[in-house]
Write a protein that binds this DNA or RNA. Structure first.
Length: 238
DNA sequence: GCGACAG
DNA sequence: ATCTTGTCGC
């Protein structure tokens, strides 16, 4: 994929906050991707004590959700994990991974927040602006705002509210299992985002794109991308 | 000042 | 995110 370099990630935490406040104005919080044929999931994994990050992008067909492409990258990071500044830690590696993606995903799911963020620019929104394509944030925990617990049945929802404004939706993707927190990333509305997350879920807490990305990220970290399953992708990158 | 705090 | 086995419950 062509990823137009919008800005540099080389900055201090204070500069990062200012950049977020500027970029938030470029986020489009409405719309609908239309017919979806390809949906991608993104995730990152780390080497325990070192500053090494493995970032992956997994593209699946939709609505059948069969894996059609998997890309991974290994990169060193300097930026520490700071709540609210996750993109500055994982962004560089993610951009590198996306540059190797050959498919053309209609929407991308991220492991983290979209606009349900202190400055309305979680990793899904930020990357959405960088990639200029529809994105959705699917987080396992809230960063800001509050939400009542959704009914226990799969499909139940409850709005994530902050200052009286709905910034996302707690979504029960599996009966009696903790909900995931969905928020608009870029170029999509909340209703469409929730519908896509549920349509991309196959009975696990996490929707397939994100779940597969998580599994793959751990696989390449533990095997150095040399496992049998990823041999083909590995050879293509070498 | 104190507590909270995506991955 | 990562370090880690079995175990209780649907």
């Amino acid at each position: 994929m062509k990823v137009p370099g919008i800005h540099s990630f080389d900055c201090t935490p204070a500069e990062a906050v200012r950049l977020q406040e500027r970029l938030r104005q470029r986020v489009v919080t409405g719309g609908d991707p239309g017919t979806i044929r390809r949906i991608a999931g993104v995730d990152a994994s780390y080497e325990k004590g070192e500053n090494v990050i493995y970032a992956v992008v997994v593209v699946l067909s939709f609505p059948d959700l069969a894996i059609v492409e998997r890309v991974w990258t290994r990169q060193e990071t300097d930026f520490p994990y700071i709540p609210g500044l996750l993109t500055f830690r994982e962004g560089p590696a993610l951009v590198e991974a996306f540059e190797d993606v050959e498919s053309d995903p209609d929407v991308v799911l991220f492991d983290g927040q979209g606009i349900a963020h202190p400055r309305a620019l979680g990793i899904a929104s930020h990357m959405g602006v960088i990639l200029d394509r529809p994105t959705i944030g699917v987080a396992k925990k809230l960063l800001t705002g509050t939400a009542a617990d959704p009914a226990e049945r799969r499909g139940a929802t409850s709005p994530i509210v902050r200052d009286g404004v709905t910034i996302g939706m707690a979504v029960r993707t599996k009966d009696r299992v903790r909900p995931v927190y969905v928020s608009v990333g870029h170029k999509i509305g909340l209703e469409a985002a929730v519908g896509i997350v549920l349509a991309a879920d196959r009975g696990y807490r996490l929707p397939e794109p994100t779940r597969q990305a998580h599994l793959y990220a751990n696989e390449v970290r533990r095997t150095g991308g040399r496992s049998r399953e990823s041999l083909q992708t590995t050879l293509m990158q070498e």
